[in-house]
Design a protein around this nucleic acid. Structure first.
Lengths: 338, 338
DNA sequence: TGTTAGAATGTAAACCTTTACATAAAAAAT
DNA sequence: ATTTTTTATGTAAAGGTTTACATTCTAACA
């Protein structure tokens, strides 16, 4: 064992072939005679040779890193998708690089250096927003797949859950339990996924023939705190809903905390549904009825799609919507008789 | 704008200097005349040149990527530390690469390819276990810093919380509330951090003169489920504790769920403490009294330490223990009068 | 036997930097 | 004015791959 790592030359010398043959033995084994292939493999085993990825990327003009950009690494939705992404990437020899923008466009821009410096080949976007100041650069956009949140600037493939369908399932459950006055606690920062959920809710209410008069909408910002505030706002009104359909679990948790703080008991006094099925949802008291995102699967599909883009295999689908599942727990019951 | 990215040659041509001068203008500006520096900078701005990191790493024999290896990316402890790590890394021009071993040594080995192929310069280890089958390779170990969990194989710098101190604080709170019969719900997979917490607990009990007879220890595996099981095990015994001090929040959550399932009320009937202060802790009913890990800070310090190692600045400290804070919430009260 | 097609291997250039060393120019010293 | 020192720039090699093209070898064919 020498002290510096073995290079392709070391292998070539030991196998008594040229470096070109070694390279071919690795990447196009069928182009090299069986006997030489054997010699090369032995030499590789002997030296413990691993190709230098830097040299490789330089020569190929392509890196084997995927940048994953999320607004917040701490988001409970993030980690399981990341697992799916990482598994799939690793299975194909890719590494996963992470970045978090904290919803700051400036921050997002910083990560572009990974592309201009050739360190990343593609990007997975959690943010729903391209990390670019100017549209002008869109032409040079690296291969990108959106996840969890569709990307505004059209034309970027997206993998996520069918938000409309999921929201419909949730509202249907509430209606089936007998609820008629349903408040939708939404999110106002114009996130596409969230507005789709609202549309799904509307659709469900329409289908059940619920009049507009008994519908309520409060817009928060998708945080626990905004769920609490939404409760306060609703209690200022003349009519209260019997059920809260929340745009995500964070909001739902906030709503439940707000209701509990006012002395109400869920689901006896009010029913609450969430969306996402974050880990916390199952530990709430009562546990939260919600719509599950198949996060691992989303990650896997998104990475597959991206790797297709990278290998110039133009994928047929540009939007993959996975089926959301209703997870029935204990935060929904029939409306109280008043 | 050409279609392929600008290289140092393009810049040199426009600035009418040699590529060496361009390189110097970037990395050793004081070595180049002010007038030329200006020309070069203009040319850089004009072309939008960014140095090709692959070529740079190849030449320098050093990458600017840090591999972060965790047993489980989904661990709520992971993400905030990751934020600290990533912020610090990015501030120094480094990228963060992630890997998750799922407590599988085989998996861990796979990530070593990032080093043998020169794609990563250093490593942050969450696992407490070196991802190596053989000790023999220890000599070739890349610069590594352990985090959250000290690394077994001695000599590896570690940044974490002072587990002893934290555990002492927790047990002191219980004792101050009047508890004498305290059960420690531990973890049996010989994790160093966890065994330190147990020692801290013992030390606190010793200091208070609590006799060995009224101490109980149950070993689980640090999961919610094992917390539940620990409760079941204790209820088989003659004497019950009045308080449960848990090795981590997951276990504490399990304990609380187990107690609730048996119809007990926390903290009226039993007190419970955790360790870590994961996000869930504050949403439990009752909210969990626990010991906070300053996770962002841990990440920041660990990365600083690693970057020092990488720049051959031998750091003086080899173990940085941050001060843990007691977070008093609602899961601890005085013991019931029986 | 002499040609030719096909298979296997080798040679060398290219990918883009950084930097030791050489050279040229300017400033300082004689 | 000449020599020496200092400063600024240029030349060219090296880092480890991949691959187009050239070469050699083998086997098949006439």
């Amino acid at each position: 064992m020498s002290n510096s790592p073995a290079t392709i030359e070391d292998v070539a010398r030991i196998a008594e072939v040229s470096i070109a043959t070694v390279s071919r033995a690795i990447h196009l084994p069928e182009k090299v005679a069986v006997s030489t292939r054997l010699k090369v493999n032995q030499a590789i085993a002997l030296t413990g040779y691993t190709p230098n990825a830097m040299a490789r990327s330089l020569r190929l003009g392509k890196s084997n890193m995927i940048l994953v950009v999320a607004p917040d690494i701490g988001d409970p939705n993030f980690s399981s998708i990341l697992v799916g992404l990482e598994n799939e990437a690793r299975a194909h020899g890719y590494g996963v690089l992470i970045g978090h923008t904290q919803n700051d466009a400036q921050r997002g821009m910083e990560y572009l250096k990974f592309f201009s410096s050739n360190q990343a080949a593609g990007m997975i976007l959690f943010t729903g927003i391209l990390p670019f100041g100017h549209q002008s650069m869109t032409a040079r956009l690296p291969p990108t797949v959106g996840v969890f949140e569709p990307v505004f600037n059209g034309g970027i493939p997206y993998v996520g859950v069918d938000d409309l369908e999921g929201a419909r399932k949730a509202v249907e459950l509430l209606i089936a339990e007998g609820h008629r006055k349903i408040a939708f606690i939404g999110e106002n920062r114009s996130r596409l996924a969230y507005s789709r959920r609202r549309l799904g809710c509307e659709a469900g209410l329409d289908a059940a023939g619920i009049p507009a008069a008994s519908r309520m909408v409060i817009d928060g910002d998708g945080t626990i705190e905004s769920g609490r505030l939404a409760v306060d706002q609703l209690f200022l009104r003349d009519t209260l809903p019997t059920a809260f359909m929340c745009v995500n679990d964070q909001t739902a948790i906030g709503v439940m905390l707000g209701l509990t703080a006012r002395g109400y008991v869920v689901p006896r006094d009010f029913s609450v549904t969430g969306f996402d099925d974050v880990p916390q949802a199952s530990f709430m008291q009562p546990s939260l009825t919600t719509i599950r995102q198949p996060r691992g699967l989303i990650g896997k599909h998104a990475m597959t799609l991206l790797l297709q883009l990278l290998s110039d295999t133009q994928p047929e689908e540009t939007e993959i919507l996975l089926r959301p599942d209703l997870v029935v727990r204990n935060s929904v019951g029939p409306p109280p008789r008043r």
